[in-house]
Design a protein around this nucleic acid. Structure first.
Lengths: 239, 239
DNA sequence: CTATGCCAAATTGTTAATATTTATTGATAA
DNA sequence: TTATCAATAAATATTAACAATTTGGCATAG
């Protein structure tokens, strides 16, 4: 009788280990996505060692994982650098994401059962309730968390672990750009209300099983941040 | 004047390093895909060391990459094992692949230019010419190589590096199952002729820009091996 | 037959040594 | 006098060897 904790918590990637390389991986990933390191900044081993309290061995494992995630690039024998950002990658990454999310949504509408509909409704409700919190940081964190839960609930209807895994991989890559958008729009009440309406419309067409309309709405919804992120990148001199 | 070898050979994954961890990664991946290690076999460090001539450091990096590729699983403090195989994963992986390949094909038909059409025709021609070679091993290798080139040429029309990257990732995962199919069907002349007809039909509808028909043909084409692989897995006692 | 304790083997992390790279300084030529 | 090239030195990355913690198996005793 095995204790049934078959590590089903596939939060981001699979956890390769629970010890020291994985914690360095999580923290480094978090810091890169949040923009703590500039796009082409060199990642010094000496700095990483004292920053994350790990030696070269575990650090190299963490960096290898991040290279697989396309958040870090490794150059022959010249160490590691944070992956560059560009307008070209921004456009491609958001396009790929919108296309994949559209595909998954169409499959979910086709394959989703009653439990799926119930979960979509529940997470949408939870998200819509995030309107009246004062401290902006807490608001942003909570909104973002429930927003992710909402979209993940929709996607889960496709019933394909591998498609969902690829969705996660792509989301890790998009999140570095997406963070620029979250920082820029300080989650103003009108922006929040606009998003709330988009989500409500999305839920409507999903429950109506209107595949074509849902696909269109979802892609427009996902592409919204692109012009704003483009402006931020241009302001920072990134082409 | 730098010699223009900016490592643009993104064959499978990005090359994290050109030295020792990456060669171990490539060989190990090849061996796992080709079935040299059984699905849940333990990967002893001592064995890997003498097999691939690398020390624990580089080997752990290679194994980390393979965990990201879902070809290896890491258990807390009990080392690494080859990822298990199952009928459930077979079905999901082929379904996800067919769906993604269909999406990419629709985009390619929508976005592909004249050069794309020319490349598709050229690779199709090259593939069709592989009919009259005697030694079966050489035949299989050459056919598989040109077959991959043909499908990659079709997919490249979508013009999205990130979608193509995800296609590669999924293909790495599917190839372990696909190898069972290649081994089973000894590439009989009639099977080869059937495939040739499918490819010709595919080229026709692609050049005619018939999106819906191309999508259907492509998915049927990709799902062909599933029943055969299912039988092989069942014969091996894998559920 | 079962449970507990000991031994062996494997994984994990650290440290040191080697090789490659980069930056600085000096010299030479224009 | 200035700019470029080369050489040396310092720093950093990469790899291998070593040590410690943990796990699994086996034997013995109850």
């Amino acid at each position: 009788m095995e204790p049934g904790f078959k590590e089903e918590n596939s939060r981001e990637k699979d956890a390769p280990r629970q010890n020291l390389a994985i914690s360095a991986y999580r923290q480094l990933k978090h810091d890169i996505i949040r923009g703590r390191y500039a796009p082409e900044q060199k990642l010094l081993m000496s700095h990483l060692k004292e920053q994350y309290g790990a030696s070269t061995g575990p650090l190299r494992e963490a960096l290898s994982q991040l290279v697989a995630d396309r958040l870090v690039v490794a150059i022959s024998q010249r160490g590691y650098r944070v992956a560059p950002m560009s307008l070209a990658e921004l456009n491609d990454i958001y396009d790929a994401r919108a296309q994949l999310e559209g595909l998954i949504l169409r499959l979910a509408i086709e394959r989703g059962d009653d439990d799926w509909e119930a979960t979509v409704l529940a997470t949408a409700h939870r998200l819509a309730k995030v309107t009246d919190i004062n401290t902006p940081d807490d608001l942003l964190d909570l909104w973002d968390q429930r927003h992710k839960a909402f979209h993940t609930a929709i996607a889960s209807g496709c019933n394909s672990p591998h498609l969902l895994q690829m969705r996660n991989t792509l989301f890790d890559q998009v999140e570095r750009y997406r963070h620029l958008w979250l920082q820029e729009t300080v989650m103003s009440p009108q922006a929040l209300e606009l998003k709330r309406q988009e989500h409500a419309a999305l839920v409507d067409v999903i429950l109506a099983r209107d595949t074509a309309e849902a696909d269109t709405l979802m892609r427009d919804h996902l592409m919204t941040p692109v012009p704003i992120i483009t402006r931020v990148l241009k302001d920072r001199g990134i082409s």
